[in-house]
């Protein structure tokens, strides 16, 4: 038996795609600024309809909806929309920072804390600041708040209707595929892999045991080749001298530790390759943006003579 929401939610999603397309097409910068505001409102209505469809779909699965997903998701989409529609480049970059902060909120919900912080530091802290510098280098910012002073290439979009239509047809096709047989996310739980990982960190175990008062200050965790001896069925740790100590149930690895082990144990070349890519980009950017200064032969000769005179003076 088909339930109502199984039919209703996809229809709502397609309607959301359509309304979103109309809204984005209207909101893109054009000569008459009044339409952009209406377009923005229509686009927000489309996003709201999409959220409603997702909400109904989740309610149908008899699960509690997560407030934070909707808050961060709407924030990301709203600021993304404002980013691609704002006529002033600096504001676009600032709205993109808002998108990044919302995405990092989503990363935290997905229990990827390290990547959430890395995202804010690298994107908002480094990449967008570079963009802002280039925007300030390459645009003559109007001092007054006057739309007339903006360049035409900023205030008029190219084919807004067609591109929005194409984009949102792609989105509708994507969502149609995504809604075939996707399950709820599995609960995060301790696994055999995390036990192995914990056993490789005897100092962390020792610190935790000291903190909870399970062992005295002079006792130490027994290690064989740097691996702590733990019986995971009873959660008992062997200590030097033959004693045993119980590990608390809540003692698990953190996302940063797991990511670190994954990065360095399973993918040891990742950091090296990333470093090479960044080095090449840095060299390329330096070579590309270098300003070629033409110095005349006479000026060169004069400078050389000055230098040699100065050297002669310091030698004497």
């Amino acid at each position: 038996m088909l339930r109502v929401n199984e039919i209703l939610s996809p229809i709502l999603l397609y309607a959301a795609c359509l309304i979103g397309a109309i809204g984005v097409a209207l909101a893109l910068p054009r000569r008459k600024p009044g339409i952009a505001l209406i377009g923005g409102l229509v686009a927000i209505a489309g996003v709201g309809l999409g959220a409603l469809a997702l909400f109904l779909w989740a309610a149908d699965a008899e699960l509690l909806p997560s407030v934070f997903f909707y808050v961060f998701g709407l924030l990301a989409l709203g600021s993304g929309l404002r980013m691609i529609t704002h006529p002033r480049p600096v504001y676009s970059a600032l709205y993109f920072i808002l998108t990044i902060i919302a995405s990092s909120g989503l990363y935290v919900i997905l229990s990827a804390e390290f990547m959430a912080f890395a995202l804010i530091i690298i994107y908002a802290g480094a990449i967008i600041i570079t963009y802002l510098f280039v925007i300030m280098l390459a645009t003559q910012a109007p001092t007054e708040d006057d739309e007339e002073l903006l360049s035409t290439y900023d205030t008029e979009a190219r084919d807004p209707l067609w591109s929005a239509a194409v984009g949102f047809v792609i989105l509708a096709a994507l969502t149609a595929v995504m809604f075939r047989g996707s399950d709820a996310l599995p609960p995060v739980q301790a696994s055999a892999g995390s036990h192995e990982l914990l056993a490789q960190m005897p100092r962390k175990i020792e610190r935790e045991l000291r903190r909870s008062g399970a062992i005295r200050a002079d006792e130490q965790v027994l290690t064989v080749d740097g691996v702590a001896q733990v019986d995971w069925d009873s959660r008992l740790v062997s200590l030097e001298g033959g004693n045993l100590a119980a590990l608390p149930e809540s003692f698990v690895t953190s996302n940063v530790e797991e990511l670190g082990f994954n990065l360095l144990a399973d993918h040891p070349m990742t950091i090296e390759i990333a470093g090479v890519i960044l080095l090449m980009a840095m060299l390329g950017a330096t070579v590309l943006a270098r300003r070629q200064v033409d110095i005349e032969e006479a000026a060169k000769a004069l400078q050389a003579r000055r230098l040699s005179l100065r050297e002669g003076a310091s030698d004497a």
Binding site: L63, A184, V188
Partner: peptide
């Protein structure tokens, strides 16, 4: 290695991969 954060609260409930 697998994710292991049983101490983390479960605000995930109701939000699927498709969302």
């Amino acid at each position: 290695l697998e994710l292991a954060q049983s101490a983390f609260p479960q605000p995930m409930a109701g939000v699927t991969l498709a969302h």
